[in-house]
Design a protein around this nucleic acid. Structure first.
Lengths: 229, 229
DNA sequence: ACCTCTCAGGTTGTCTGAGGACCTGTGTTG
DNA sequence: CAACACAGGTCCTCAGACAACCTGAGAGGT
């Protein structure tokens, strides 16, 4: 059963996922001794080194533990897995879709609740983003995310702010790859300045519907790019 | 520098720790490209396989990420903090507000994307919730959350599903406290059965607007109770 | 009957050598 | 100046070999 018909590159990751499912799925409860490396290699149809690396990955995640001369044992069924690691492994489009759902609603709240301090911070972030339009990709993406973080912060919900902060690293990487991949910034000399200015303006004026509409349009466009890539 | 004079067993673990210190210690910030496997093997005085397994362990822990043909890069410097602990500390109303923002949008997606399997699961969850209406508070809240989780799952976005799962424990506690505090279920003999049935029905029919509207009304009502408490 | 010792088999640990696949930058070419 | 071809570096995978180690069964002594 050579891992189904999966062909793409990282055999190790396929093996890791396959083994992880056996554990998290309950087929191998805590305390189970896994089949030997040679047996796993034969079962999965990969080399022994590949199996070993997959087991190391699971060990690094805290799911299994190897005892020399004895075997590999399951020590946890839940990935004591931190959320950001899960995000890194997820598809960028899925992450971005959730980000969009959350942030559009956050913009509504922001327009309804923004304080004067929020308005000041938004204006500063908008300027910083405009200035970074001439910098390198990473700096621009950082400035962009900072502005969006300011929008979310203006909603005045700490849980929401933390949630966005949790998403930020995954977004950052995904967006850097994207602008790099599609040469977005060359095709859009404006760098989205107008749209973001309109967003900040709507929030400042307290225009709930306009804020969410502008933001949704902008995010939807980027999501389309992501799906294309 | 063959790893000092350490002789005990697992060379891989020594190498893993050595590399981990470079990362968490700040010598290799996020984005750093690690030296090649051969270079690391020479530096640490171990074989390439050993280095590879150590890198796999770090990858499993979410600290580094390998890109074939390019190199191994640092993607995080700490194992990330505990998000669920942050949620437990947050105000219930804030948690619930975010939950509402996310779930209403999730209901839209669910109505648009739900599969036949989703519909089956939703019907089962709805029955279970109705049946639990006669049980104790905790069981009822669990059944209620399970139904809402099924709605979110029907949206078909794994990140979204994981996100709701992350919120579930905090919601559970908050809701149990709520029904206990306000004696909600005595005042509402229906237990919200009709509203939830309408939600499931709208998703089954693929009625996007109806699904989100029904869910928003129901959640808004509970949020009002939370604010009162 | 019980304990101890030895040993064989199985398992993980480590290294080496060899290709294959992939990415990136460089230099050539038109 | 743009597009292409190439070479080098890097990770990915496999196979084979040997070492280190644990476990359980059996031999031997008490």
């Amino acid at each position: 059963m050579p891992l189904g018909t999966l062909r793409p590159s990282p055999l190790v990751e396929q093996a890791t996922e396959h083994l992880r499912e056996q554990i998290t799925g309950g087929h191998w409860p805590v305390g189970t001794k896994l089949p030997g490396e040679n047996a796993l290699a034969a079962t999965l149809g990969v080399g022994r080194s590949t199996v070993r690396e997959a087991l190391r990955a699971l060990a690094g995640a805290g799911l299994v533990q190897a005892r020399q001369g004895s075997g590999v044992f399951v020590v946890a069924t839940e990935p004591a897995e931190d959320w950001s690691a899960r995000l890194r492994r997820a598809a960028v489009t899925d992450v971005y879709e959730v980000r969009m759902m959350v942030e559009v609603q956050a913009a509504r709240l922001a327009a309804a609740r923004r304080t004067d301090a929020d308005v000041t911070a938004l204006a500063a972030a908008l300027d910083a983003r405009r200035a970074a339009g001439r910098g390198d990709d990473a700096a621009f993406v950082d400035a962009d995310i900072a502005l969006h973080a300011a929008v979310v912060a203006a909603a005045g919900n700490p849980v929401l702010t933390d949630l966005f902060a949790e998403f930020a690293p995954a977004l950052r990487q995904g967006l850097i790859d994207l602008v790099d991949l599609l040469a977005l910034r060359e095709n859009d000399p404006d760098h989205g300045d107008e749209a973001h200015a309109a967003l900040v303006d709507a929030i400042t004026r307290g225009d709930v519907d306009e804020a969410s509409a502008v933001l949704e349009a902008e995010l939807q466009q980027t999501l389309a790019y992501l799906h294309r890539a």
